[in-house]
Write a protein that binds this DNA or RNA. Sequence first.
DNA 1: CGGTTTTTGTAACAGTATGTAACGAAGCGC
DNA 2: GCGCTTCGTTACATACTGTTACAAAAACCG
Lengths: 234, 234
Amino acid sequence: MSLHRLLLVEDDADMAAMMAAYLRRQGLHVTLADSRAGALAALKSGRVDLILLDVSLGRDDGVALCAEIRAAQDVPIIMVSALSADHQRMAGYAVGADDYIAKPFNPDLLLARIRAVLRRAGRAPSLIHRRRDSVLRFGGWRYDARRDEVTAPGGWQVTLSARETALLRVFLANPLIPLTREEIAAALDDDEAAEGRAIDMLVGRLRQKTDASLIRTERGVGYVLAADVTRADD
Amino acid sequence: MSLHRLLLVEDDADMAAMMAAYLRRQGLHVTLADSRAGALAALKSGRVDLILLDVSLGRDDGVALCAEIRAAQDVPIIMVSALSADHQRMAGYAVGADDYIAKPFNPDLLLARIRAVLRRAGRAPSLIHRRRDSVLRFGGWRYDARRDEVTAPGGWQVTLSARETALLRVFLANPLIPLTREEIAAALDDDEAAEGRAIDMLVGRLRQKTDASLIRTERGVGYVLAADVTRADD
DNA sequence: CGGTTTTTGTAACAGTATGTAACGAAGCGC
DNA sequence: GCGCTTCGTTACATACTGTTACAAAAACCG
């Protein structure tokens, strides 16, 4: 994986420093900008793979800036906001943001979103579950990543289709975190699937083959793996 | 089990709002202070179970404040800092902090630390959390937090919708304490719900499915869970 | 006390979201 | 081609949840 260049546009210096520190630790190259002017300057001076853009930028308006950047060039943008109000969210999408995340966010979730957007933009390979040499336990079930085997609490072995297995791995990579259908589709590298009810069906089938209570529905949001995941180490 | 009172001392208003929103959603009573003076005032004016103290407080020094509070009374303190440098950490522990966490932190991790410190301090039993395998008893009823199951006194099992369960958890986290509709809505992370009569309906439906006398109406105020809550430990 | 106002309980309704059966297209091994 | 599996679409049933409307209860006030 090449070094991804991220432009973080955030006017709160403390917040910016925190996020930058975290993201750099995760192996990303982070450039900071604290204003519209700074962001545009940074965009001109070098390659940028992804922009993390705060909606509230003091005087400047993040939404307007997003539209402006979008009009000029094709760089993926994730909007960040302290408000989760829907109109803000819609405003973010309307101007072409690729994703949206509300503070306070789970840093890991932010990273997952960043990866998803980068992957969608064709700038990075899929990052979910590369390590195949592990056995995971979740709610009495086992998943052997090496053999792609799923074992029920009673010891029965369940056979999942490739797609069902992929879905399970998405959930296993994000336990207890609600995933929207869009996020799931993105993680499956199949943005089309987010359109219809394909994800619903997929989840339904996985539920049937495993345990309906394993995957909980978050109404209006998506689905969550309702169990913690631990390494089995055996 | 009583409501846990948390004093959040943080001078960055945005950060404070984010953290407070998250913690309140988890069933904690959060008081905000943005300065040394504010923190001390809040400490005098009411019971506080735990202090979340930001090290960087503009003019004021969080480390010194920690020492000062510690000298005066025995309240657990978790230091929060943008820096994870070891000497900072040691400085925090040196003046009596019970734990130390660096930004950016995973919210769930923060909650885990809070729970751990509260438990260590013997203030109260652990918080209600889906990941905990706790079973709660209240007025003959049982709530299994792990399975999200509610059992009636006769042994019947009742199925609640997601929202009803969320409401029940809000009450279980605040037994015998009257909650306004606004507080309930805030705890449900749905401020819109405070507008109309959505909360009324929600309470009505929970009453129907459980026991009408479990939740008492405080006319002009809101609703109370009219039963004490204990851990079942089985 | 009786009338008025405020507050709450709840039935009925509606809009939306979700579960799932049934179907059919596509792929695959033979 | 044929039988099989996989998987998305459609269609419909069901479930969830907020709104409205009105009745009941409580509070208020002369």
